[in-house]
Amino acid sequence: MVVDSQLMSFFTAGSLIVIGIFAALFLDNLIKKIIGLAFLGDGVNLFIITMGYKPGGIVYIFLPDMTISNFAQTSAYPLPFALVLTNIVIGASTLAVILGLVLILNKRHGSLSASKILRDKGE
């Protein structure tokens, strides 16, 4: 079976994004929604990393015994990787904020059900 692993990785990222959006929109439990959002972020990160990947390439670390032109032609593209590092941190910190809000709301309503907590009171 010969399937391009980069393409497969894109599909994995896509399915994680779809699973995440589905969970965030259609599951009622707030914790499940948050887990879905974490998967959405993971999916996007995987998508970006896969974009920078070069089949048969080398890690983007310039070692003394390499020539510049050889390095430029074979190394993976490091810019997306730098973006992912930032995004992982952003994702973790927003997650912490959401969980804090959930804790407070749970104390007030005694429930984790989104439809109970976020019910619109007289739009």
């Binding site: 959006i21 965030a24 929109l25 929604k33 959002l37 959405l40 972020g41 952003i90 927003t94 904020v97 959401i98 809000l101 959930v102 709301l105 907590i117 976020l118």
Partner: peptide, 11 residues
């Protein structure tokens, strides 16, 4: 919570 949940999909 609503705003940040939507924001975490849109972001």
């Amino acid at each position: 919570l609503k705003y940040i949940l939507i924001g975490n999909i849109a972001g």
